[in-house]
Design a protein around this nucleic acid. Structure first.
Length: 199
DNA sequence: CTAAGGATTTCT
DNA sequence: GAAATCCTTAGC
């Protein structure tokens, strides 16, 4: 079943939707559609990155030129380059003055993706941004934009969502173990460990 | 397993 | 300024 971009636009989530607790938003993003231009994909994996206390978060050093948007109000993008190679797409969360963002790590193809499309095409944060045509050019953009937004799509029951430690943050001490990664359990597009379920 | 790759942040 | 670090991926 493939939705139209127009139908997704009608279901667009407003800025206020993102201006809530980061962990709550990360979980609620599973099953939503990330839309850029004519391309859309269903989010199946997302990680919460919290405020200054979270030693895995970019916010851990306080506001800097790069991460400053994390300290503003939710509902805007935060895109940065990692390992000199990969663009990482995040959504800023929470109220102004409280740092927080959610990293979108994997999605399942919905519409408009360049062929061939398979589950691996958007599995992993770097591949996801490449497939959707997102880059740092899209940093700090409002998410209620006509061409870049997130829409309510599939309703996901609580039992279908798995929690696990975040990927690639082993340096963060005790924070590395916290279950701030949310996945659609067993979905083939989820990167790394796929959580509970048959897979 | 490791190299690539460029920017960010923290050090001297 | 210099050096270490980094929310990864593809390719030996």
């Amino acid at each position: 079943m493939t939705p139209s971009i127009a139908a997704l636009r009608a279901r667009r989530l407003p800025p206020r939707w993102f201006q809530r607790d980061t962990e709550l938003v990360a979980r609620a993003l599973i099953g939503c559609a990330l839309v850029h231009g004519a391309r859309a994909a269903m989010i199946v994996e997302a990680e919460a990155y919290l405020d200054e206390r979270d030693l895995a978060s970019h916010a851990r050093f306080g506001p800097t030129p790069r991460n400053q948007v994390m300290f503003g109000p939710g509902g805007v993008t935060y895109v940065y380059l990692c390992y000199g190679v990969h663009e990482m797409f995040n959504v800023v969360t929470g109220a102004a003055g409280t740092a927080g963002a959610v990293l979108i790590r994997a999605a399942a193809p919905l519409v408009g993706l360049p062929e061939p499309v398979d589950d691996a095409a958007l599995r992993g944060p770097g591949k996801l941004t490449r497939a959707l045509g997102l880059s740092r050019a899209h940093d700090r953009r409002p998410l209620d934009d006509d061409a870049l937004f997130i829409a309510r799509w599939r309703r996901v029951p609580a039992a279908a969502i798995a929690r696990s430690p975040r990927i690639g943050v082993a340096y963060a001490g005790a924070w590395a173990a916290r279950p701030l990664r949310f996945t659609l359990a067993g979905h083939p597009a989820v990167s790394g460990p796929r959580g509970k379920g048959r897979g």
